[in-house]
């Protein structure tokens, strides 16, 4: 069963007196345990698709079934709760609080999930070790490189142990080596934790490491490639 299932999504924006149709009846299915990549030229609607699939932005029409739930049926509070319980995010900007150490950045959302301090510390330390920052847990953002900041942001997402992990251009602000580290982490998360990783990027390195690449243009998916990489058995994706 697909972890994410979207059907007939529509979204348009007003730009002055014009209405721009960003998504036009798009449907997609995304499987668990895979790193799925959406690529396409800027303005093709890939970020809008990611925001609708991840519960950040309501579609004008259409539905999203995430982990078997109709994501957009409830009110905003219900969607907030869904995101809190099940999703992690990695953004292009690292968006770390300058006042907090790496460990505190990762612990912060866990507190809002109702976890005890001891439990949050355990999970956060484990997440930081997993992204290779076990020795930097006390560092503030000012003391970390760009790649390290992005790894803290990934650890913040991972510590929640989300079934769904969304990443938006996670490598575009990073140098080659840091970008490769981040790509490896995202792949590992998908394959070892059976997490659904959905990533928007046009970084060619990411394309070559994804299990599946969806090419998008003008609000529709044009092609769907299953990559023959080191990632394991091939699965079918439904595209319309």
């Amino acid at each position: 069963m697909s972890a994410l299932l979207a059907s007939n999504l529509y979204k348009s924006y007003a730009s002055g007196k014009l209405r721009i149709d960003v998504l036009r009846g798009l449907s997609i299915a995304v499987e668990a345990g895979r790193l799925t990549l959406i690529e396409g030229p800027s303005g093709c609607g890939k970020s809008t698709l990611l925001s609708i699939l991840s519960g950040l932005q309501r579609p004008d029409a259409g539905s999203v079934t995430a982990l078997g739930q109709d994501l957009w049926r409830g009110d905003n509070d219900a969607v907030d709760r869904f995101r809190l319980q099940h999703t992690g995010f990695v953004f292009q900007g690292f968006n770390l609080f300058s006042a907090l150490s790496a460990l505190e950045q990762v612990m912060l959302p866990l507190g809002y999930m109702g976890m005890t301090r001891a439990e949050a510390i355990d999970r956060s330390q484990a997440a930081l070790v997993e992204v290779g920052l076990g020795d930097r847990i006390d560092s503030r953002p000012a003391e970390l490189s760009g790649g390290e900041k992005q790894r803290v942001a990934i650890a913040r997402a991972l510590a929640k142990r989300p079934q769904l992990l969304f990443a938006d251009e996670p490598t575009s602000a990073l140098d080659a080596a840091s970008g490769q580290v981040v790509i490896d982490i995202l792949r590992r998360v998908a394959h070892e934790h059976d997490t659904t990783v959905l990533c928007v990027s046009h970084d060619p390195r990411l394309v070559s490491h994804a299990d599946r690449v969806l090419g998008m243009e003008d609000g529709v998916i044009l092609n769907d490639r299953k990559m023959q990489s080191v990632s394991g058995p091939e699965k079918d994706g439904n595209v319309s």
């Binding site: 509070d77 907030d80 995101r83 319980q85 992690g88 995010f89 900007g93 770390l96 959302p109 809002y112």
Partner: peptide, 18 residues
């Protein structure tokens, strides 16, 4: 100055009330 950090917390599911 910290609006992106707050937005990230909100993305991670922390409601506007907290």
């Amino acid at each position: 100055g910290s609006i992106n950090e707050y937005a990230t917390l909100h993305a991670l599911g922390v409601g506007l009330r907290p």
